[in-house]
Nucleic acid binder design. Structure first.
Lengths: 106, 106
DNA sequence: CGAATGCGTAAGCAGAGACTTACACATCTG
DNA sequence: CAGATGTGTAAGTCTCTGCTTACGCATTCG
């Protein structure tokens, strides 16, 4: 989710949507420095939104469409299905008990 | 999009999904300070994800479901429909012309 | 009125995030 | 092997974000 929050990363994702591309090719599409793109690519791969394939010195990147769809489905679920359970969970916060857990619900 | 990137804001959104709630009620659901929630509510209202209604000294918040669905639709479009145009636009970056605009594509 | 309630805003701070330049490393190529 | 090529990593900077405390401003209520 956070990976998609950045516009540059969204652009990158679209670039490698149907064509495999090398890091250099991708970087050439932007004005910013190559390392910056490399870091964005790292975020995207960590989020499993793209896959990498090494070929010689080059690294080919490709999007993983199923992951984006996963995210869209999650967004749907977030909003409709299972809402009641989630809401109840959120409301539990209203009566804090001693076992206070880190604030990182879905 | 950025508004949904924060987990606290997502929780708030769910809280006011089907019930109108006051700022105080919402704040009581979290461990963090009330002003912090107030700021999150501001982000959400700025993003038109919730509406506010003043009643006396209280402020009632409610989610705008259509906006979330809008976002989900956007995500779908982002990934499927209109992809070619968007991709072409992104690739234009490859040949930067003098009129360089701020890096903020979709 | 004046105090109390319910909120938002201001200001400050610590940490995260998106860049940069400089560098390291692997792989091809002569 | 040595240089060139393609790429990731390190380290530093600047800005944004999410919090906090302190305060200000309406509204209600005694």
């Amino acid at each position: 989710m956070r990976a998609l929050a950045d516009p540059t990363r969204r652009s990158i994702l679209r670039l490698v949507h149907d064509d495999e591309r090398t890091a250099g090719e991708i970087a050439a599409s932007f004005t910013m420095s190559r390392p910056a793109i490399s870091q964005h690519l790292r975020v995207l791969t960590d989020a499993d939104l793209v896959t990498v394939r090494s070929e010689g010195t080059r690294r080919w990147y490709r999007a993983r469409p199923e992951r984006v769809e996963e995210l869209r489905d999650w967004l749907t679920d977030f909003w409709t299905a299972g809402l009641d359970e989630l809401k109840r969970a959120a409301e539990q916060e209203e009566w804090p008990d001693r076992a206070r857990r880190r604030q990182e619900p879905t």
